[in-house]
């Protein structure tokens, strides 16, 4: 009888623990999202085509600051990546090529996802990329652009709305073609 009671007590303790943990973890996702982008669950919602691209300000590797709201009348190619992400690294020559081709006509920015500056700098130095790469050590920018996976790339039109969304990448050449046609249709 006593043993049964103990068993019941253990199970109820265990169930309460699981329920508590569930509440804790469902509530501590990305809290940094701007209020305007908060969905019903309190977390930033994933963007869809036609949505207004959330504004952010980022520190770029050349020392300048990139602000989305200051890119008016420009098509923006916004990418999220990391050095450990194979497909992200693989498609980067596409951004370099587009940057060389379009110059100031298109604002290209590759936002690194939560790695430290030193890691990002070593990567850029080794690869020799010249297009703007931004740091996001604390994940403040990516929290406004929630995604289940990277590479995550958005083409944002001159009106500031999201025109195309890409999750994943199929190599530099194919991605170059994809991004180029999306940019051209917005120019």
């Amino acid at each position: 009888m006593k043993q049964k009671k103990i068993k019941k007590y253990t199970w109820s303790m265990f169930l309460s623990l699981v329920v508590c943990m569930t509440f804790v973890f469902s509530g501590c996702g990305n809290k940094k999202a701007s209020e305007s982008m908060l969905g019903e669950s309190g977390q930033a919602t994933e963007l869809s085509q036609g949505d207004q691209a959330p504004d952010f300000t980022a520190e770029v590797n050349d020392g300048s600051t990139f602000s989305l709201s200051e890119q008016k009348d420009k098509v923006i190619l916004l990418n999220f990546w990391a050095t450990w992400c194979g497909p992200c690294v693989e498609e980067m020559p596409a951004f370099e090529k587009l940057y060389q081709e379009y110059g100031d006509q298109v604002a290209i920015l590759a936002v690194n996802s939560m790695e430290d500056k030193g890691t990002v700098d070593r990567f850029i130095e080794e690869q020799g990329y010249t297009f703007p790469i931004a740091y996001d050590e604390k994940g403040e920018i990516i929290s406004k652009y929630p995604t289940d996976g990277i590479p995550y790339t958005l083409v944002i039109g001159k009106d500031g709305t999201v025109k195309k969304i890409y999750i994943g990448a199929k190599g530099a050449e194919q991605q170059y073609e994809e991004y180029k046609s999306a940019i051209d249709s917005e120019l």
Binding site: V18, F25, S26, C28, S41
Partner: peptide
């Protein structure tokens, strides 16, 4: 134990 993730089909990306 992020049970809501199963319902939404989303990955938990918090600090933990």
């Amino acid at each position: 134990c992020n049970l809501t993730g199963f319902a939404e089909g989303k990955i938990y990306q918090g600090d933990f």
